[in-house]
Amino acid sequence: MLEVQNLSMRFGGLLAVDQVSMDVQEHEIVSIIGPNGAGKTTVFNCMSGFYRPTGGKILYRGQEIQGKPDHKISRMGLVRTFQHVRLFSRMTVVENLLVAQHRHLNTNLIAGLLNTPSYRKREQKSLDRAAYWLDRVGLLELANREAGNLAYGQQRRLEIARCMVTEPELLMLDEPAAGLNPNETRELNELIISLKEDYNVSIVLIEHDMSLVMDISDRINVINQGRPLASGKPEDIQKNDDVIKAYLGEA
């Protein structure tokens, strides 16, 4: 469903991403790994419309999306998270989920002011969906708290819930396990698998936690210094000499 062809991104004299290609199929979890500064997040930023790539193509369901405005990309069903938590911290937990459904709601201001039945029905629907996902990630009791006051692990889960209420087809998670304790990481692991199995979402994942990556990925792409180094199934990557060298240095 997603195809990245010879993607390059240059910042002035720095070629951060050089000829990276990869693809994501329906119903698949694909990970991008690589040492720090390898350009993983830059690849992500290009795919989500955050950056306009300087070379190459990104095709989503056959349509070129590079350089499209990011709200259009997300409306096509491609949604991402960031390395650091980016919730609307001064809004309540449930508001965070409601605002993410902005595009599903009737855009007619008059209907909103008059509180017409169809408007109310849609509001109710988005409220139901928000409640469902809050329950799913275990935050239902905290619905009316300010998002900024949640514990870190809860904020991480809320972010995933916020992505899910937009009903994405492809979810891109940038280091979702960063800063989580082993317990929370295991819960996250189960959550991600269930997103794929139960909600039919494909997932692209950047992650440093190797146990998580090896557990849940269907395929792995390794990037080193902006260049593709290897790609394949987790067990092949674990055995790949180039990958081991890149991570551990040459003996």
């Binding site: 989500s48 419309g49 990011d70 709200h71 605002v99 902005h102």
Partner: peptide, 8 residues
């Protein structure tokens, strides 16, 4: 930026 990424 985040609002825009969520489709607003």
């Amino acid at each position: 930026k985040m609002s825009s990424l969520l489709g607003i």
